[in-house]
Amino acid sequence: MDAIFFDIGGVLLDSASVRRAHERFVADLSEEAGLDSDAALETWREELGAHFREREGTEFRSARAGYERAIAALGIDGEWEPLFESALAETIEPNPGAVEVVETLAERGSYLGVISDVDAAEGRRILETFDVLERFDSITTSEEVRRTKPDPAMFQAALAKSGTVPERSLMVGDRYHHDIEGAKEAGMRTAAYGADDGPAVDHRLADLREVLDLV
């Protein structure tokens, strides 16, 4: 493989740790504002869910806009970003082997890219927290492309940056329809990490470190 692309959430990033970070943030915010933390968390989840459900097709919807909507629904008017960033930085965790795989591939000289539906700033902040941001040659986000996976534009944009041909590029993803089918339709090789099985899966990974043997 000439290029290896990773999704962030669910692949490099442990998704469960994100939920814990949001729970901590809402609890800290509730304490500062004198709110019931359980009710506030329910409102937070409802508003975020509604924000993303209103998306049409593969259009991009900013997570930050969803956070602002949920904050407004809680009746909070003030600076919340430092508290949110602190909760994320101190709570999110990489999946087992993720940092090792990125560092090893980078040391081998492999082209490394990200293809993720995250907001650009949030994606970079996550990679920076794991101290691997500088290991990536390119980062392609839905905020940049204005589309989400499996829209072909996401994969085409990433491939254009890498200058590699699809059949010599590997996509590592955790969602079958978005990551695996989307990449396969773009002509890429695929590695499923936690994704459902299906005809678009070329390789299944029980551990991210298995990527090192593939490439």
Score class of each variant (00 low, 15 high):
Asp2Pro: 01
Ile4Leu: 12
Ile4Asp: 10
Phe6Leu: 13
Phe6Lys: 08
Phe6Val: 08
Asp7Met: 08
Asp7Gln: 11
Ile8Leu: 15
Gly9Phe: 07
Val11Met: 08
Val11Asn: 09
Leu12Val: 09
Leu13Cys: 10
Leu13Trp: 07
Ser17Asp: 03
Ser17Glu: 03
Val18Met: 10
Arg19Asn: 12
Arg19Cys: 03
Arg20Met: 11
Arg20His: 10
His22Cys: 05
Arg24Lys: 15
Arg24Pro: 04
Phe25Val: 08
Phe25Arg: 08
Asp28His: 06
Gly34Glu: 01
Leu41His: 07
Glu42Lys: 14
Trp44Phe: 14
Trp44Cys: 12
Glu46Leu: 11
Glu46Ala: 15
Glu46Ile: 07
Leu48Gln: 09
Gly49Asp: 13
His51Trp: 14
Arg55Ala: 15
Glu56His: 01
Thr58Glu: 14
Glu59Arg: 09
Phe60Lys: 06
Ser62Val: 09
Ala65Trp: 02
Ala65Asp: 15
Gly66Leu: 12
Glu68Cys: 08
Glu68Phe: 05
Ala70Cys: 06
Ala70Gln: 03
Ala72Ser: 15
Gly75Arg: 12
Ile76Thr: 04
Gly78Gln: 08
Leu88Met: 15
Thr91Glu: 09
Ile92Gln: 05
Pro94Ala: 13
Asn95Phe: 04
Pro96Ala: 10
Gly97Trp: 07
Ala98Asn: 11
Val99Asp: 02
Glu100Ala: 13
Thr104Arg: 15
Leu105Met: 10
Glu107Ser: 14
Arg108Gly: 14
Tyr111Ala: 00
Leu112Arg: 05
Leu112Met: 05
Val114Met: 04
Asp119Val: 07
Ala120Gly: 00
Ala120His: 14
Gly123Gln: 06
Arg125Phe: 10
Leu127Thr: 07
Val132Lys: 07
Leu133Trp: 01
Phe136Pro: 03
Phe136Arg: 04
Ile139Leu: 15
Thr141Lys: 13
Thr141Val: 11
Glu143Met: 07
Glu144Gly: 01
Val145Gly: 07
Arg146Lys: 13
Arg147Gln: 12
Arg147Glu: 13
Thr148Asn: 11
Lys149Leu: 06
Pro150Cys: 10
Asp151Pro: 05
Asp151Ala: 13
Asp151Asn: 14
Pro152Arg: 10
Ala153Gly: 04
Ala153Asn: 05
Phe155Cys: 00
Ala157His: 13
Leu159Met: 13
Ala160Phe: 02
Ser162Leu: 00
Ser162Pro: 00
Ser162Phe: 00
Glu167Arg: 13
Arg168Trp: 06
Arg168Gln: 15
Met171Thr: 00
Val172His: 11
Gly173His: 03
His178Phe: 04
Ile180Ala: 00
Ala183Leu: 02
Ala183Met: 01
Lys184Tyr: 02
Glu185Thr: 02
Met188Ser: 12
Met188Tyr: 10
Thr190Phe: 05
Ala192Ser: 15
Tyr193Ser: 04
Gly194Ile: 07
Asp196Pro: 03
Asp196Met: 07
Asp197Gly: 00
Pro199Val: 05
Ala200Glu: 03
Val201Asp: 00
Val201Leu: 02
His203Cys: 03
His203Trp: 09
Leu205Ala: 11
Leu208His: 08
Arg209His: 03
Leu212Tyr: 01
Leu214Gly: 13
